Amino acid sequence: MRVSWPREANDAATVTVVVPCYNYGHYLPQVVHSVLTQKRVAPRVIIVDDASPDGSVEVANALADDDSRISVVSHAKNMGHIATYNDGLARVETEFVTLVSADDIVATGALSRATDLMRAYPRVGLVYGLPTEFRGDPKPSWEEDGARRSNWTIWRGKEWLLWSCLRGRNFIFSPEVVMRTSAMRQVGPYNKDLPHSADFEYWLRTAADWDIGRINGPSQAYYRVHGKNMHITTYSTLQIDLEHRLAAFRVLATAEVTRRLPNGDRFLELAMRGICREALLLAERNLDSGGPTGTSLEFLEVAVAAYPAAAETLRGRTLSYRLRRALAGAAPTGFQNFTESYRHQLNRARWVAWRKVGIS
């Protein structure tokens, strides 16, 4: 890892923002405006409407009629979000590309910050940053966010990959990612067999062959939180999230990746242990907080699926002891309460580290 100060490129980079849309037509003007008002880049927008029944395509076409930098792709029938992503990405002709949901917003200056980094470091294929969650409409003060001082973190791809495997975590949210189009072409399309962790798998495939950059400081994207978010409406539990992470990590042992990452099976083994540790830790935390034993048993199932010898590890034996006490009706001990408080503080420290350099 290295930390670098930003330096501006001499000319404007060409960037295409692919906007997949399904029933989000009322959000389209906002996200398109956030793209076309970006400074020091030459932006284009491709809106891909996936047969929305709410009139989204009419909104998209009206926007395209007003600005030649916008093009619209309209599906005759609903193809699902992965096919929609791939359809839009296949049409990109610019040097850089990003995929932004119709309900999210590109932060002021985000595209120039990301492309400056990739132009300064030709081996960096993907840049991410800090996403900010919001509800309702964005606040005007956010326009000033781009003025915040920033720096860059540059990771060798395999180094970033190792940290992700060891922690069993995805350090990237998604709307803040900007890629080098040549890297996107090499990585290939999103995996249709992983509809709920395809983005994470995509970052893993990218890191197998490209370095990873991160913008530290200002927000790179605004992620809208509402009742229709996929992760809220369908995949809201941490157990399921862990299962999807594990499914994404399995790409590391595929022939596609091992051609570029000869020790991919070793990375996968580390990732499986990382998922196991994470699941066992969450099971412990649930019990230490006085949560239901059923939840911890579900976490234990995830841990065993990732690493069959999970119950034999030190953390697994510790969890077994806690489960026996909880099943017998015993309340968490003072030590358990203290441990949970310590873990809470440790998580805060890791959150600060993630904000600073992009991993935790």
Score class of each variant (00 low, 15 high):
Met1Tyr: 12
Val3Tyr: 09
Val3Phe: 15
Val3Trp: 13
Ser4Gln: 10
Ser4Val: 15
Asp11Met: 07
Ala13Lys: 01
Thr14Asp: 10
Val15Ser: 01
Thr16Arg: 08
Val18Trp: 05
Cys21Pro: 00
Tyr22Cys: 00
Tyr24Lys: 13
Pro29His: 11
Leu36His: 03
Thr37Ala: 02
Lys39Glu: 14
Arg40Asp: 13
Ala42Cys: 09
Val45Ser: 02
Val48Tyr: 03
Asp49Arg: 03
Asp49Lys: 04
Asp50Ala: 06
Asp54His: 07
Val57Lys: 06
Asp66Leu: 14
Ile70Cys: 04
Ser71Val: 15
Val72Leu: 07
Ser74Leu: 08
Asn78Lys: 15
Met79Val: 15
Asp87Met: 14
Asp87His: 14
Gly88Met: 04
Ala90Arg: 14
Arg91Glu: 13
Thr94Phe: 02
Phe96Met: 09
Phe96Tyr: 15
Phe96Ser: 08
Phe96Arg: 07
Leu99Trp: 11
Ala102Thr: 02
Asp103Phe: 06
Ile105Phe: 08
Val106Gly: 03
Arg113Trp: 05
Arg113Tyr: 03
Thr115Gly: 09
Asp116Asn: 15
Asp116Pro: 09
Arg119Leu: 12
Arg119Asp: 12
Pro122Trp: 11
Gly125Ser: 04
Arg135His: 13
Lys139Thr: 11
Lys139Tyr: 11
Glu144Ile: 02
Glu144Lys: 12
Asp145Gln: 12
Gly146His: 05
Ser150Glu: 10
Ile154Thr: 06
Arg156Leu: 07
Gly157Arg: 00
Glu159Tyr: 03
Trp160Glu: 00
Leu161Met: 00
Leu161Ile: 00
Leu161Thr: 00
Leu162Cys: 01
Leu162Lys: 01
Trp163Tyr: 10
Trp163Ile: 02
Cys165Ile: 00
Cys165Glu: 02
Gly168Pro: 01
Arg169Asn: 12
Phe171Gly: 00
Ser174Cys: 06
Ser174Met: 06
Pro175His: 05
Glu176Leu: 04
Thr181Tyr: 09
Ser182Ile: 06
Ala183Gly: 01
Tyr190Asn: 10
Asp193Gly: 08
Glu201Ala: 11
Glu201Cys: 07
Leu204Phe: 04
Asp209Ala: 15
Asp209Gly: 14
Asp209Phe: 03
Asp211Phe: 08
Ile215Lys: 04
Ile215Asp: 00
Ile215Met: 03
Asn216Ile: 08
Gly217Asp: 12
Pro218Asp: 00
Arg224Lys: 12
Gly227Met: 04
Gly227Gln: 11
Gly227Thr: 05
Lys228Asn: 14
Thr233Phe: 14
Thr234Gly: 11
Tyr235Pro: 03
Ile240Asp: 12
Leu242Cys: 09
Glu243Ala: 12
Ala253Thr: 03
Val257Ala: 04
Thr258Arg: 14
Asn263Ala: 07
Gly264Phe: 04
Met272Ser: 13
Glu278Cys: 09
Glu278Ile: 06
Leu280Lys: 03
Leu287Cys: 07
Asp288Asn: 08
Ser289Glu: 15
Ser289Gly: 15
Gly290Gln: 11
Pro292Asp: 11
Thr293Val: 15
Thr295Phe: 08
Glu301Gly: 15
Ala305Glu: 10
Ala306Glu: 05
Ala310His: 05
Gly316Glu: 02
Arg317Ile: 06
Leu319Cys: 07
Arg322Glu: 07
Ala326Phe: 01
Ala328Thr: 02
Ala330Phe: 10
Pro332Ser: 11
Gly334Phe: 08
Gly334Leu: 14
Phe338His: 11
Thr339Ala: 09
Asn347Val: 08
Trp351Gly: 10
Trp351Ala: 13
Trp351Asp: 14
Ala353His: 08
